[in-house]
């Protein structure tokens, strides 16, 4: 039993928890206000979009692949939808969400086709799709920022779950859109842990050939993985636009680094087969805390990219070294 406790206390997730606690104490000493409701609300909002993407990316990485096309897919799905609904005067948010989901799904299917059927390396396939999607957005849909979002959609950004006013009278509000990543987390957790589909995703990430022999339909699972990644990329893109109250065709480009970083820091092995929803949430949380509080720690903003880069390098080195240690350790 003692051994099991020790095992639990040294899992990847727990290590990230230690780091988060240490950071919180550090920031809390510098700025006591940090440890409060206001921070919780600010961080939740900061994590919202990253979480949507990170959950999908985690699933893709567990299955033994990688997807760097989601920012471009998110942008093209969101931007074309916004232009479409404005042009035709469609107000319904449900229609808009349906449309981004479909466009996202289509790009996801393209990724899946290239990876599962043509057997291209996932990085190169998704890089290519990313370039196609991004180029198409800018070349054929335009480069303008759109701020006249249809009213009913815009109204979504003003629905709040929690309102909190601190002693200085500043009000912090938690947007209801947080329910999107929250429900995704619940579904992903359930599917990955308690369905054969979820176990199949782990299985193909562990050994594709063994999965095929065992009777999994590897191609089908890969299609499901990449298509859901595309679907939620679209949904994430539209949610981002509603939150920001404007649509820009480039806004999310470049966020893939941060998302992959969060996933890997959360203990998902880049080589596939390992990863948990909890770990990914913690990874996203850690990076959000660092990004939002660098100034508080006396680190100037122009150091942000570097510090995040450093955290990723250290985080990935630790996960890789742990994997290496397990591989070299005595077998039982």
């Amino acid at each position: 039993m003692n051994k099991k406790v020790k095992q639990i206390l040294t899992t990847n997730e727990i290590i990230v928890v230690y780091i988060i606690i240490a950071l919180c104490i550090l920031i809390g000493i510098v700025n006591p206000v940090f440890l409060g409701m206001s921070t919780a609300i600010t961080l939740s909002r900061a994590m919202l979009i990253t979480l949507i993407f990170a959950i999908c990316e985690m699933v893709v990485i567990i299955s033994g692949g990688i997807d760097v096309s989601f920012p471009a897919v998110a942008c093209i799905a969101m931007y074309s939808t916004i232009r479409f609904v404005i042009a035709f005067g469609i107000e319904s948010p449900i229609f808009a969400y349906g449309m981004v989901a479909l466009i996202g799904l289509a790009f996801g299917a393209l990724n899946a086709y290239l990876i599962a059927k043509i057997k291209l390396p996932p990085l190169i396939a998704t890089l290519g799709v990313s370039s196609v999607a991004n180029g198409a957005t800018l070349a054929f849909l335009g480069t303008k920022e759109i701020s006249n979002i249809p009213e009913k959609m815009d109204a979504l950004s003003k629905v709040f779950l929690i309102s909190y006013t601190n002693s200085q009278g500043i009000t912090y509000q938690l947007t209801a859109l947080i329910l999107i990543p929250v429900s995704m987390i619940i579904v992903a957790y359930y599917v990955l842990k308690y369905t054969m589909l979820g176990r199949g995703i782990y299985a193909i990430g562990g050994d594709k050939n063994a999965a095929r022999i065992a009777g999994f339909n590897v191609t089908r699972i890969q299609f499901i993985v990449y298509m859901s990644s595309g679907l939620f990329a679209g949904i994430g893109g539209l949610t981002y636009t509603i939150l920001m109250r404007q649509a820009s065709p480039q806004s999310l480009m470049g966020s893939e680094m941060m998302v992959i970083a969060a996933v890997v820091v959360g203990g998902t092995r880049i080589t596939g087969g390992h990863g948990t929803v909890i770990g990914t949430i913690l990874g996203v949380l850690l990076i959000a805390i660092v990004q939002n509080n660098l100034i508080m720690l006396g680190i100037p903003t122009h150091f942000q990219t570097f510090v995040v880069g450093l955290i990723i390098v250290i985080g990935t080195s630790i996960t890789s070294l742990r994997a290496k240690k397990i591989a070299n350790s005595a077998k039982v």
Binding site: I124, A125, V129, V132, A133, N134, A139, T143
Partner: peptide, 12 residues
């Protein structure tokens, strides 16, 4: 921007 689009297509 068409270039980005074409590069991607070419790569694939």
């Amino acid at each position: 921007f068409v270039k980005t689009f074409v590069w991607g297509l070419l790569l694939l």
